[in-house]
Simulated assay, not measured.
Amino acid sequence: MSIDRKYLIAALVYAIIGMVLGIYMAASHDHVHHVTHAHILLIGFVVSFVYGIIHKLWIVQPSARLSMVQFIFHQLGAAVLLIGLFLLYGNIIPESTLGPIMGIASVCVLIGMLLMMVIVLAKPGSYVAA
């Protein structure tokens, strides 16, 4: 499966999760997870979707290895961060326990973004003409 398709599928999964959480919050009138909801939709859905678009529209021959490392960093970091936010705002696990884990996850998401920049800059002659 191509990396752009992997990102599209991941983005749609995050969108479904975010929408289900949003519907739950609206139905229950309990908006304690609004931060989690926003992060699921932004980091999970929007950023994954944008990465997929970048791969589909601009990068002709990405390094398969580097693209997979970048995908793993983003998806793993996003998933851990979003689960951590759910556990934190749900008062299931205290911030003192989750803070370091979420900090590492946030750095993974940042590394994913930095790696995307490397991918975009790596082959200046191999992009689709705009």
Rank of each mutant, 00 (worst) to 15 (best):
H34E: 14
Q70M: 04
I53H: 07
A15H: 07
A27W: 13
D4N: 14
A64L: 10
L12A: 00
L88H: 12
L81M: 10
P124W: 04
A122D: 14
L76N: 03
S106I: 03
V46L: 13
M19Q: 10
V60G: 13
I83H: 06
V20G: 07
S96K: 15
I101R: 06
V50E: 02
G77N: 02
V50Y: 06
L87P: 02
R65L: 13
C108Y: 04
M116Y: 05
F86Y: 12
G99Q: 15
I53R: 03
A79M: 13
I92F: 07
L88A: 11
H33V: 05
A78V: 01
Y51A: 06
H74R: 09
S2I: 08
P124F: 05
S106H: 01
L110F: 07
V35L: 14
G99D: 15
I111T: 10
L8P: 08
I16M: 06
K123Q: 05
I59W: 00
F45R: 02
S126A: 11
I16S: 04
K123C: 03
G52L: 05
I43C: 04
L114K: 11
Q75P: 01
D4F: 11
A79R: 07
I83T: 11
L21Y: 05
L82A: 12
C108K: 00
A105H: 05
L110Q: 02
Y7P: 03
L115K: 06
L110G: 05
L42F: 14
M116L: 13
L8I: 09
L57V: 12
